[in-house]
Structures are given as C-alpha cells and as structure tokens.
Design a protein around this nucleic acid. Structure first.
Length: 275
DNA sequence: AGGTAAACCTGGACGC
DNA sequence: TGCGTCCAGGTTTACC
C-alpha cells in the first residue's frame, strides 16, 4: 500500500495521539511478519514515554528514551489510533496500549497487515538499525536533486523507472509515484538510466519532489485499503495521470496509454508525451 | 557490481 | 456458486 506520502500521512495522523504518552502495554498477536517481531519488545517499551514519531524512507520510528520501535507497513499494513476496547478485526497483529491523561481512558495504536509484509523491529537508542543504513537521500531534502540522479546513474543499464525505485538511489518512491513522476518529466520509463541527460534528471527530480509533496498534502493515495490513522482515505488517487490507467487515453494528448511490466512491476506511460 | 527473477502472504477481481 | 488464475502500493534473497 504505502509509499512515502502514505507513510508520512500515517506519521502525521499518529503524532498528536501518541507524542508524550506512555506505553501501558503491548500485545503481539502474530509476531511472524516479514521478519519476526522481537519477543522482548513489549518489555522494552512498557512504561516508556513516546517522545515523537519520525520517518526515514518508508519506515516509521516511535522514539523513547530506551530506543525506537521501527515499523514498516509493507504492501498492506496500516496503523490506526482507536478507542480502548475497539473489537479486533482480522489481521490485527499488534496493539500498543497508550496511557490516558487525567484519568481518561487511553487509546490503542493498532497494526493491521493482511499480507504480513510489514515489519516491527527495535532500534536501541544511539544506534541505527541495519535496514536504515544503506538508504539513499530523502526526496524532499536538499541532498536530492537531478545532479544526484545523474551521477549515480552513469553506467547503469537498468530502466530509469527501476533506477528511480531503488531505495539506495532515493527513498520513498514506489510504483505509483515513479510512474507519475516520469510522466510529469516526460521520460519513458523504459529508457536506460545511464543514458538520461542531466537536464532531464533535473526535471525528474523536480517532478518527484512536487508530486510527493502534493500527495502528502492530499493525504496520500487510497487505491484499495489505505486509510490514515484517523480512518480517512487519501485523495491523491483522483489526480493520478497514468498509474492504473493502462489502455485509457492520455489526458494530455489523447493517445492510448501503454502498459507493460518493467522490472516485474506494472508500468503505464504515454508513448507520445514520454520519450 | 549490477541486473533480473523468485520469494514472502492474503484477498479481491475476473473468467469459465 | 465455485474454482482456478492473476494481480496488488515493498523488499530481500538467490542466481546469473
């Protein structure tokens, strides 16, 4: 489900409900996610105050003095804040029970993930989890621009779309936003990464930034089941130019949008607007 | 090293 | 209605 905008939407939705709260209890119902949830995690977090939630790439970090709970939503994961006592649904794998304030009942942070491609791991204070160590720059930071893409891409023969989705090149860009950014930049996704010019990479980097920032403003993209922590859908889907529109007319030029698999991922583009 | 394919898992959509 | 097949927003692993 989630690319950077959906993860950031989740972070923003959770933050006011979680920041400054203490963890009363943690329940692991199914620890067998993509990697097993460390069994000692409930003990480590119990009684800890959550100072805030940060995001690195598509990972969310719930920070406490002792360390951070590191979440990844995989393809189908979601984190929601619910009233204590909300009945369980299928695939509710983890609860973090949060202390209430002034004697009021607390809330529960609930992780649901049908496909279990998600992760919940522990990062001790002062360390960086191995999974976070070989990631590229954040696309909305100053470290990301067209020059970065241009230099990294020299000599690479993979399609530019696969290159853009490589999390060691730049983080947060998945299948939806890669398709949309390439459309906005006018670059065919099949083009060899190493043969794209600096000028076009500058356009592409700008497109990535603009599209991600805009999608965050709209609360992300809801295709099937993405919901924010408050239970609201995202509204970016209405603005998708090519993703999911294979065979339909390009809204810019009218040509039938082409669809093919590139690097095992469905890819849609306009062969007139993108070259 | 870099590129590609298979693997992880469940549910929904579609065709017969 | 039911069954088989294919597909899905991600990432790691294995194998050229």
């Amino acid at each position: 489900m989630p690319e950077l905008p959906e993860v950031e939407t989740t972070r923003r939705g959770l933050l006011p409900h979680v920041a400054g709260r203490r963890v009363c209890k943690m329940v692991l119902r199914r620890p067998d996610l993509r990697l097993p949830i460390p069994p000692e995690l409930p003990k480590l977090l119990r009684g800890q105050e959550i100072h805030g939630i940060t995001r690195r790439a598509k990972y969310l970090l719930m920070d406490s003095d002792r360390g951070s709970a590191l979440w990844h939503l995989g393809m189908s994961g979601s984190l929601r804040v619910l009233a204590a006592g909300t009945p369980l649904r299928a695939h509710d794998h983890v609860d973090v029970e949060l202390e209430g304030i002034d004697g009021k009942p607390g809330h529960v942070l609930r992780f649901n993930d049908p496909r279990r491609f998600g992760l919940l791991l522990w990062q001790p204070a002062g360390t960086v989890h191995p999974l976070l160590q070989s990631l590229g720059p954040e696309p909305l930071s100053d470290d990301f621009d067209g020059d970065h893409l241009f230099h990294l891409s020299r000599g690479r023969s993979a399609p530019v779309k696969a290159f853009l989705m490589d999390q060691s090149v730049v983080v947060g860009v998945g299948n939806i936003y890669a398709a949309e950014a390439l459309f906005a930049a006018g670059i065919a996704p099949t083009r060899e990464a190493g043969k794209v010019s600096l000028d076009r990479y500058r356009k592409l980097a700008d497109a990535v930034r603009v599209i991600l920032a805009h999608a965050i403003e709209r609360g992300g993209t809801t295709l099937r089941d993405f919901i924010s922590p408050d239970g609201l859908p995202g509204y970016f889907e209405q603005e998708l130019q090519v993703y999911g529109r294979g065979g339909e007319p390009c809204w810019t030029c009218g040509r039938r949008l082409r669809e093919e698999r590139i690097g095992q991922r469905a890819s849609v583009w306009c062969s007139r607007c993108q070259t």
